[in-house]
Write a protein that binds this DNA or RNA. Structure first.
Lengths: 256, 256
DNA sequence: AAAGTCGTTCTCACTGAGTGAGAACATTTT
DNA sequence: AAAATGTTCTCACTCAGTGAGAACGACTTT
């Protein structure tokens, strides 16, 4: 008879996960009350779960009384996609040594690119991407490379949606983008200029393993240095090859 | 009357967390049956939870049918200790640029050091530490720095336990270690030689924020180059100072 | 200093969500 | 083809989870 607000049929597990989910896209520290609001759960339920998560190490109570995601989650997360990250990382570092430009490694998660690794120093700070961050597929070079690997029906469906335009120069016209994706498929690389941020240019190539694109490797630098793309292409290509070779290597067992 | 095997009183949440915990220290991919065994849960219960976790994105079913930790956990984990990692990372990279030696950033978690960041290229591969990995506090330079920050009662209790000796040269005598910890407190840095791996040397300094050691910054290189410690000390110190300065900076708000 | 606001902690009677043995089936190994 | 191992799912039982609300603490406002 009362309002049917409560998300009925929610399992205990899903509630606990909602509590964790409340931290996604948050500032990092949340009070129990705020967690409850974000997770759409009653206060007492939230309270109980927060404490169980805290005891396990999934959440951590800061000195200000607010909760943060705990290191146990961080440690667990290190297990996700470890093969790719571990194998690729040393070569990203090599590429950075060579170029001293921002180096990215991203995978596709749904309709976004997820940045799984990134090399940068204190010299190059203003960045849009961050490790663990997501960006749309059509506005970065890595994103387009990842999109280009998808079947036509996926690409078409993606382009049919309302596309974000982070800069005035961002291409959002489905017809032009279809064309551009075709170019990426033909050339095996993507170059985007000022699509995600003004004065930024990015180049990317796919990392192929077992016949499918598992990630995209990219370089980002200032747009006015567009002539240097030529110089970086062979280095980017070489790095991708080394990563692909390393991916194929022996399984490198450990524990259990 | 039957065997009291079941861990009675286990809450649903704790069971779900056990499922996740089953992946800790695993090879990365586990069958449902193996998860059940490791988590000490009945098969049907495990099955149900694995599926709920999978639906949420916490677990991912591989092409071989085995489960792995999913990227959603990885993403969530990026929120843990982000302030430290984000602020420190660029300077670790700078230090690597300068030295081209392995650079580590570790925090203390219980009686171990947890490696939260690390810079290395393909040149320096044989390593014991890994991002997300743990090592004992007494056998590395970062570990000793972290231990030295603890009160005497903690140090004493730590040293009283059976201490691992990864190499023949590892110091495990509590009396000598107490002495060494005293040195670290006095000098503000730690140097360890072949304590964790033969032919490896490590130097570390504490990163202090709000009057307490929040992490330890370390360099690792070949033991026979011990003379170079002199050369690296100022660079290590300078990097720590920059990190500490950056930690104090404006809060850098984002979302919510 | 009193009232108001916001957050935390905890209790308790009620009930429906979670349970797990076991059956049926699929896949791989011997 | 027999055995071993793993997956998926059902169902009757009951115990763990529930959430309104009370009590309290720490602030800001008036």
């Amino acid at each position: 008879m009362a309002e049917p607000e409560q998300i009925r049929g929610a399992s205990v597990t899903s509630r606990a996960l909602s509590v964790l989910g409340a931290f996604e896209g948050s500032s990092g520290s949340l009070t129990v009350a705020r967690i409850a609001a974000r997770a759409q759960l009653p206060l007492s339920t939230t309270y109980r779960m927060v404490h169980e998560l805290e005891e396990w190490g999934g959440l951590r109570k800061g000195s200000d009384g607010k909760y943060q995601v705990g290191f146990r989650i961080w440690e667990l997360g290190q297990l996700a996609g470890r093969r790719l990250r571990d194998r690729a990382h040393p070569f990203l570092q090599d590429l950075f040594d060579l170029t001293h430009e921002n180096v990215h490694l991203a995978i596709r998660e749904g309709t976004q690119s997820l940045y799984v690794d990134k090399i940068y120093s204190s010299r190059k700070m203003p960045q849009v991407s961050r490790i663990g961050g997501r960006l749309p597929l059509h506005a970065t070079a890595v994103g387009r490379v990842l999109l280009a690997d998808q079947p036509d029906w996926f690409v078409d469906a993606y382009l049919q949606r309302e596309l974000e335009a982070p800069t005035p120069k961002t291409v959002t016209d489905p017809r032009i983008l279809t064309q551009l994706i075709g170019d990426v498929r033909r050339d095996g690389y993507s170059v985007t200029i000022e699509q995600m941020r003004m004065n930024a240019l990015s180049v990317a190539r796919p990392v192929v393993f077992n016949g499918q694109t598992v990630a995209a490797l990219g370089l980002v630098f200032e747009a006015h240095r567009y002539r240097e793309v030529q110089r970086f292409m062979p280095q980017l290509r070489g790095t991708v090859e080394r990563i692909e070779f390393a991916m194929a290597g022996r399984p490198l067992t450990m524990g259990e």
